[in-house]
Structures are given as C-alpha cells and as structure tokens.
Lab assay of single mutants.
Amino acid sequence: AGSTTLRAVGKLQVRLATKTEPKKLEKYLQKLSALPMTADILAETGIRKTVKRLRKHQHVGDFARDLAARWKKLVLVD
C-alpha cells in the first residue's frame, strides 16, 4: 500500500501545484485526506509543504490548514 499511496500523493502533488480552479483543488485535497498517510510519505514527498502553501487560499484555505495540522500531528507521533 505504501508505494501505491506514494504514487497517488505524487500525482496529486503535481496537480495541486499546477491547477488553480477551486473545485479541482478541493477535490485533490479531499483525495489526499482519504489516503493512508505516514510520516515517511510526508517526508519523502514534501506534500505537507505543498498543502501548506494553500492555507491562505480563499476557497480551500481552511481545508488545507486542517489537513496540514493533522499531518503535523502524525509526524510528531512517529
């Protein structure tokens, strides 16, 4: 499952970095939220930084902030 999640995170990371349409960004964040994330995947992909960049986004900022905070707890636990 780890390598599958890693690939999925990579694809979503590229999309988050290149797309600007709020509905698409929200969809990608929801998909990321549903993935079985680990501290290793967060470290290897840097996805948390990508998501943190969206914290001030008018439409998806709250979602991005919550997701980044949830992942921060995951990193602190591991």
Rank of each mutant, 00 (worst) to 15 (best):
A39D: 03
D66P: 00
D62S: 06
K11N: 13
V60Q: 01
G61V: 01
L54E: 01
S33T: 07
L6Y: 05
Y28L: 10
K73M: 07
A8S: 07
L32Y: 03
L25F: 01
R53C: 13
K52E: 15
K24I: 13
D78P: 09
R15Y: 15
L25K: 00
R70W: 00
D66V: 09
G2N: 13
A39C: 09
V75G: 09
V9N: 00
K56G: 14
V60R: 00
S33F: 09
R65D: 06
A64L: 05
K19R: 07
L35I: 12
K24G: 04
T20Y: 04
I41S: 01
K56W: 13
E26T: 03
E44H: 04
A64N: 00
L25A: 00
I47G: 03
A39W: 10
A68G: 03
A64Y: 00
K11H: 13
V9W: 03
L35S: 03
H59K: 08
Q13H: 06
T18P: 12
G2R: 07
T4S: 12
A69R: 06
L76G: 12
G10A: 15
T4R: 05
D66F: 08
R7Y: 07
R70L: 04
I47D: 01
D66E: 11
E26V: 04
K11M: 14
L67C: 03
Q30K: 09
L76S: 11
H59S: 11
K27S: 13
V77H: 10
G61N: 00
A64F: 08
K23Q: 12
G2A: 10
A68Y: 12
K24S: 12
R55A: 15
K73Q: 13
V60C: 04
D66S: 07
A43Y: 08
A43G: 04
K49A: 15
E21S: 10
V51K: 06
E21T: 09
L67P: 03
L16A: 01
L32T: 07
L67V: 04
L74W: 07
H59T: 12
V77L: 10
L12I: 12
K31D: 13
L16N: 01
A17C: 12
H59Q: 11
L29F: 03
V60H: 03
E26N: 07
K73E: 14
I47Y: 03
G61H: 01
V60E: 01
D66G: 07
K27N: 12
L76Q: 12
E21K: 06
V75M: 10
D40M: 15
H57D: 13
L35H: 00
Q58M: 14
Q58R: 11
R70E: 07
V51D: 01
Q30Y: 07
R65V: 05
D62G: 06
R55L: 12
L12P: 00
G46E: 05
Y28W: 12
T4Y: 07
L76T: 13
F63R: 05
D40I: 15
E26G: 05
D62F: 00
L16I: 12
T20C: 13
R70V: 04
I41N: 00
T50I: 11
D78V: 04
R15C: 15
H57L: 13
T38P: 02
R48V: 14
A68E: 06
S33A: 12
K23H: 13
P22E: 06
L29P: 04
K31P: 03
R53G: 14
L42V: 03
L67W: 00
A69S: 08
T18N: 13
W71S: 02
E44A: 08
K27M: 13
T4F: 07
R55T: 14
P22I: 03
K72P: 01
G46S: 06
L76C: 12
T45M: 05
L35A: 01
K27E: 15
A68K: 04
S33E: 11
V77S: 13
Q13C: 05
A43H: 09
W71K: 00
R48Y: 14
R7Q: 14
Y28V: 12
E21Y: 04
L54K: 02
L6K: 06
W71R: 02
P36K: 06
T38M: 02
H57A: 05
T4G: 11
F63S: 04
T45D: 01
R15N: 14
K27A: 13
T50Q: 07
K73S: 12
G2I: 09
L42S: 02
W71P: 00
H59C: 10
K72T: 02
T5F: 11
T4V: 09
A64R: 00
V9A: 07
R48H: 14
K24M: 14
A43I: 14
D62T: 06
M37E: 07
R7S: 13
D62H: 06
H57M: 13
T38E: 00
T20M: 12
V9S: 03
L76I: 10
P36V: 09
Q30L: 06
G61Y: 01
K24Y: 10
A64H: 04
T20S: 10
A34F: 06
L32K: 05
L76M: 11
L76D: 12
P22G: 08
K27R: 09
H57I: 12
E26Q: 09
L12Q: 02
A1V: 09
L16W: 03
K27G: 12
R48A: 15
L29S: 01
D62E: 12
K56P: 06
L35Y: 03
R65I: 08
L42F: 05
T18K: 07
L25Y: 01
F63K: 08
R65F: 02
A69D: 12
V77C: 10
P36S: 07
A39R: 08
T50G: 03
G46Q: 06
L67T: 00
L76A: 12
D40Q: 13
K11Q: 15
V51F: 01
M37S: 03
R48K: 04
T18V: 08
V60N: 02
V77G: 14
K49D: 15
R7N: 12
L67D: 00
G61Q: 00
W71G: 01
V14L: 09
K19Q: 15
R65Y: 02
A17H: 08
G46T: 04
I41A: 05
V9L: 07
R65S: 09
A68I: 09
L42K: 01
V60F: 06
T5P: 08
R70C: 07
K52R: 07
R65P: 03
A68V: 10
R7A: 14
G61L: 02
K52M: 13
H57K: 04
A43F: 07
K23P: 05
D40H: 10
T4E: 15
V60G: 00
K56A: 12
P22D: 08
V75C: 13
V9C: 05
K11G: 07
T20E: 11
Q58H: 12
K24A: 12
E44K: 07
L32N: 00
F63E: 04
E26A: 08
A43W: 08
E26P: 01
Q58S: 12
E44L: 07
A69Q: 10
T20Q: 10
L54G: 01
P22A: 09
I47C: 04
E26F: 13
T45A: 01
Q30N: 10
Q13W: 05
A64K: 00
A43D: 09
M37L: 08
A17M: 13
P36L: 06
F63Y: 06
L25W: 02
V9D: 03
L74G: 02
Q58F: 15
A43T: 08
A34R: 06
T20V: 11
G2E: 15
A17I: 10
L32A: 03
G2V: 10
L12S: 04
A69W: 04
I41M: 06
L6S: 09
H59P: 01
K31A: 14
P22L: 04
A34S: 11
R15T: 07
Q30I: 07
H59Y: 09
V51T: 01
V51H: 00
K19H: 14
A8N: 11
V9M: 04
A1L: 10
A34K: 09
L35G: 02
L16F: 06
K73R: 06
V14E: 15
A17Y: 04
V77R: 10
G2L: 08
T50S: 06
V9E: 07
L32Q: 02
Y28C: 08
D62P: 04
L35P: 06
L42R: 01
L29E: 01
A17D: 15
A17Q: 12
A1Q: 13
G61D: 02
A43R: 09
K72A: 07
Q58C: 14
